[in-house]
Protein backbone atom coordinates (compact mmCIF):
# COMPACT_ATOMS: atom_id res chain seq x y z
CA UNK A 1 0.00 0.00 0.00
CA UNK A 2 1.43 3.36 -1.04
CA UNK A 3 -0.80 5.30 1.36
CA UNK A 4 -0.94 5.48 5.13
CA UNK A 5 -4.69 5.73 5.49
CA UNK A 6 -7.87 5.60 3.50
CA UNK A 7 -8.33 9.36 3.64
CA UNK A 8 -4.81 9.83 2.31
CA UNK A 9 -5.72 7.46 -0.49
CA UNK A 10 -8.77 9.57 -1.37
CA UNK A 11 -6.91 12.88 -1.11
CA UNK A 12 -3.79 11.74 -3.01
CA UNK A 13 -1.91 14.72 -1.61
CA UNK A 14 -4.18 17.19 -3.32
CA UNK A 15 -4.25 15.42 -6.65
CA UNK A 16 -7.31 13.40 -5.67
CA UNK A 17 -9.92 15.35 -7.63
CA UNK A 18 -7.98 14.98 -10.87
CA UNK A 19 -7.24 11.30 -10.46
CA UNK A 20 -10.72 10.38 -9.28
CA UNK A 21 -12.45 12.48 -11.95
CA UNK A 22 -10.47 10.65 -14.63
CA UNK A 23 -11.29 7.24 -13.24
CA UNK A 24 -14.95 8.13 -12.76
CA UNK A 25 -15.37 9.37 -16.32
CA UNK A 26 -13.48 6.35 -17.64
CA UNK A 27 -15.61 3.80 -15.80
CA UNK A 28 -18.91 5.58 -16.45
CA UNK A 29 -18.25 5.92 -20.19
CA UNK A 30 -17.02 2.35 -20.52
CA UNK A 31 -20.05 1.09 -18.59
CA UNK A 32 -22.41 3.12 -20.78
CA UNK A 33 -20.70 1.82 -23.91
CA UNK A 34 -20.83 -1.78 -22.76
CA UNK A 35 -24.40 -1.62 -21.48
CA UNK A 36 -25.54 0.20 -24.60
CA UNK A 37 -23.91 -2.36 -26.88
CA UNK A 38 -25.52 -5.21 -24.95
CA UNK A 39 -28.91 -3.51 -24.99
CA UNK A 40 -28.92 -2.84 -28.71
CA UNK A 41 -27.94 -6.44 -29.33
CA UNK A 42 -30.82 -7.62 -27.18
CA UNK A 43 -33.20 -5.26 -28.97
CA UNK A 44 -32.04 -6.59 -32.32
CA UNK A 45 -32.62 -10.21 -31.26
CA UNK A 46 -36.07 -9.24 -30.00
CA UNK A 47 -37.01 -7.47 -33.23
CA UNK A 48 -35.82 -10.48 -35.26
CA UNK A 49 -37.92 -12.81 -33.13
CA UNK A 50 -41.00 -10.63 -33.52
CA UNK A 51 -40.44 -10.52 -37.27
CA UNK A 52 -40.27 -14.31 -37.50
CA UNK A 53 -43.35 -14.80 -35.35
CA UNK A 54 -45.30 -12.31 -37.44
CA UNK A 55 -44.14 -14.13 -40.55
CA UNK A 56 -45.18 -17.50 -39.13
CA UNK A 57 -48.67 -16.21 -38.26
CA UNK A 58 -49.12 -14.78 -41.71
CA UNK A 59 -48.06 -17.93 -43.53
CA UNK A 60 -50.36 -19.98 -41.28
CA UNK A 61 -53.32 -17.84 -42.30
CA UNK A 62 -52.31 -17.87 -45.94
CA UNK A 63 -51.83 -21.63 -46.12
CA UNK A 64 -55.05 -22.52 -44.29
CA UNK A 65 -57.23 -22.98 -47.41
CA UNK A 66 -55.40 -25.75 -49.19
CA UNK A 67 -56.43 -24.70 -52.68
CA UNK A 68 -55.25 -21.11 -52.60
CA UNK A 69 -51.70 -20.23 -53.53
CA UNK A 70 -49.37 -19.29 -50.70
CA UNK A 71 -47.32 -16.13 -50.94
CA UNK A 72 -45.26 -16.71 -47.85
CA UNK A 73 -41.71 -15.52 -48.16
CA UNK A 74 -39.23 -18.21 -49.03
CA UNK A 75 -36.08 -17.88 -47.02
CA UNK A 76 -33.01 -18.07 -49.16
CA UNK A 77 -29.83 -18.78 -47.34
CA UNK A 78 -27.11 -16.30 -48.16
CA UNK A 79 -24.37 -17.29 -45.87
Amino acid sequence: MAFDSFSAFIAMEGHGPYVWACYAVFFVLMAVLMAGSLRSRKAMVESCRRGYEFQADKSKVASAPASSASFARVNVSQD
Binding site: S40, C48, S77
Partner: peptide, 27 residues
Protein backbone atom coordinates in the same frame (compact mmCIF):
# COMPACT_ATOMS: atom_id res chain seq x y z
CA UNK B 1 -12.55 -7.64 -28.00
CA UNK B 2 -15.77 -8.32 -26.12
CA UNK B 3 -17.29 -5.02 -27.23
CA UNK B 4 -16.30 -5.72 -30.83
CA UNK B 5 -17.95 -9.18 -30.65
CA UNK B 6 -21.20 -7.83 -29.16
CA UNK B 7 -21.47 -4.99 -31.65
CA UNK B 8 -20.51 -7.13 -34.61
CA UNK B 9 -23.14 -9.68 -33.63
CA UNK B 10 -25.76 -6.93 -33.51
CA UNK B 11 -24.73 -5.74 -36.94
CA UNK B 12 -24.73 -9.29 -38.35
CA UNK B 13 -28.20 -9.97 -36.93
CA UNK B 14 -29.48 -6.80 -38.55
CA UNK B 15 -27.93 -7.58 -41.93
CA UNK B 16 -28.67 -11.30 -42.09
CA UNK B 17 -32.08 -11.48 -40.47
CA UNK B 18 -33.59 -12.89 -43.64
CA UNK B 19 -31.29 -15.90 -43.68
CA UNK B 20 -32.30 -19.27 -42.37
CA UNK B 21 -29.44 -19.63 -39.93
CA UNK B 22 -30.27 -16.40 -38.10
CA UNK B 23 -33.89 -17.50 -37.87
CA UNK B 24 -32.80 -20.81 -36.40
CA UNK B 25 -30.40 -19.15 -33.97
CA UNK B 26 -33.03 -16.68 -32.81
CA UNK B 27 -35.94 -19.09 -32.50
Amino acid sequence: GWLACVRMQTEILSREQRTRWVKEFVL
